[in-house]
């Protein structure tokens, strides 16, 4: 509860910060719409030649795009900026200020920086999901809706743990943010169903860089094609990665020595 309130405080700070630069909202909305147009345009071109891609109908791919925008929106709204700030802080030694606060430091550094306007993608994603759901409506039961929410939460935890672990590397390696560029560019592969990729690529997108858990798996759950075992697997993996990420963070902290002290 207390942590929720803390996150809300940081969110409000982010809001105040960005309200000073309202012009950026216009630019961000424009760029988000452009991103949306690109994605929809790509889908339109593909679906002018076929009515299913690897067994996925257009409405399902629209839903997948929705998940892609939602998760990408969350990453850009809070995860990416907070991790960026963490890496700068470690490099400059200013992480001290977070460590001395009377709350869990990992939590603090994870929600510290909100780029509010990047949340536009989140809204676009929810809109796309809404449209896709209306088209899929007839086939959607409460079980698959629940499975979707669980898979989405698991995917979110997996993506967060992945980013957090890579950012924690910064305690040992100075320029860890370059590794994150790899995630950012691989993420776009998540706009398409995992099943169309050849097996070596599917394996890489699932276990080396967990893009599949963020987009494909939740959408499979929603369209009822995800087996209960796979869903359980995603939840277990999420818990495991979160635990590993915690251990790794604590080890990293031991390694940290402030710059000024």
């Amino acid at each position: 509860m207390r942590y929720l309130r803390l996150a809300a405080v940081y969110l409000r700070l982010g809001v105040f910060n960005e309200l000073e630069y309202r012009g950026n909202l216009v630019v961000q909305v424009f760029q988000s719409l452009l991103g949306l147009g690109t994605a929809l345009g790509g889908l339109a071109v593909v679906f002018s030649y076929t009515d299913n891609l690897g067994g996925w109908a257009p409405a399902e791919l629209l839903g997948l795009l929705g998940v892609y925008f939602v998760v990408g929106g969350v990453i850009n709204l809070v995860i990416q900026p907070s991790m960026q700030r963490l890496m700068e802080d470690v490099r400059e030694g200013t992480l001290d200020f977070s460590l001395i606060k009377p709350a869990d430091a990992q939590f603090l550094v994870s929600v510290r920086q909100f780029q509010l306007w990047r949340g536009v993608d989140l809204l676009i994603g929810l809109g796309l999901l809404g449209i896709a759901l209306r088209d899929l409506g007839a086939t959607l039961g409460p079980a698959s809706a629940l499975a979707f929410l669980v898979a989405l939460a698991a995917g979110g935890v997996i993506v967060y743990s992945f980013w957090m672990m890579l950012s924690t590397l910064t305690f040992w390696v100075v320029r860890a943010e370059n590794i994150l560029v790899i995630f950012q560019s691989l993420y776009q592969a998540g706009r398409w169903p995992l099943s169309i990729y050849p097996s070596w690529l599917r394996y890489g997108l699932t276990f080396v860089v967990p893009v599949a858990f963020a987009t494909s798996v939740p959408m499979e759950a929603l369209s009822g094609r995800l087996s209960p075992a796979a869903l359980a697997g995603a939840v277990v993996l999420a818990a495991l990665l979160l635990w590993l990420c915690r251990r790794f963070w604590l080890r990293g902290l031991k390694h940290y020595s402030g710059a000024s002290a």
């Binding site: 593909v46 299913n52 891609l53 690897g54 590794i179 560029v181 560019s185 398409w192 690529l201």
Partner: peptide
Amino acid sequence: IWLFGGIVEPTVYLVVWSTVAESS
């Protein structure tokens, strides 16, 4: 690392279009 994005994008479209070609 900066090369990476330039590899992923064409690869994705390669996979998408090969899939469409095979299914039609």
